[in-house]
């Protein structure tokens, strides 16, 4: 497979959230605004990219019987790094994402790529795969965040885009939990409708 295909496969065709339906918890929980969604996506991409590289480098030395605990340890190392990094440099974002930053460690997307791809392929390919899947996740979250922020709050990245009248009565439930379920349900239905 060509290098560019490895990258784009995770980005669109096998998008983790919208096509494979994995990593749903953070996707629904932190997509209330574009900023939170984008921040969460980049944090997960960072973890996925570096854990894929390290696992790929060590793939011939990891004994098969204990591979899953070792993968989890490697992933949790990078989760701890991004956790403390965000706490120090992006305290507002960290506050908004809350418990979902340490929970990147149990995101099945990351362990799934480690098990299915990085433990069997070369370093370059694993890095590209991690970047593609991670950015696909970021893309899905950002689109959801944009839809929910525009309708629920009348803003995009904090800037008002509708007139004064909308401020008094936005579709408030879009930024509340039910809106997340509704947005991803309608998006998935549209994907089903137009991808065949």
């Amino acid at each position: 497979m060509k290098k560019s295909q490895i990258f784009t496969r995770g980005l669109i065709k096998e998008n983790a959230v919208l096509v494979l339906m994995i990593g749903l918890c953070p996707a629904l929980a932190v997509s209330g605004t574009v900023r939170d969604a984008f921040g969460m996506g980049l944090a997960a991409t960072f973890v996925l990219f570096f854990s894929n590289i390290i696992i790929s480098i060590m793939r011939k030395r990891i004994p098969n019987e204990v591979r899953i605990p070792i993968f989890i340890l490697i992933i949790s190392t990078f989760v701890t790094i991004i956790d403390y990094f965000m706490q120090a440099f992006q305290p507002n974002l960290y506050q908004a994402l809350g418990v979902f930053v340490p929970l990147i460690v149990v995101n099945c997307m990351i362990l799934g790529r480690a098990e299915a791809y990085a433990s069997k392929n070369s370093v370059i390919n694993s890095a590209l795969d991690g970047l593609g899947v991670g950015l696909g996740f970021t893309l899905a979250l950002t689109v959801m965040g944009a839809i929910r922020e525009i309708f629920g709050n009348g803003t995009l990245l904090g800037m008002a885009i509708f007139g004064e009248g909308f401020k008094n009565a936005p579709v408030i439930f879009m930024i509340l939990p039910p809106g997340a379920f509704l947005v991803i349900g309608v998006m998935k239905a549209l994907i089903n409708r137009y991808s065949k």
Binding site: G179, F181, L182, G185, V186, A189
Partner: peptide
Amino acid sequence: PISFIAAG
């Protein structure tokens, strides 16, 4: 999709 909407 319908599961998501029902959950919503």
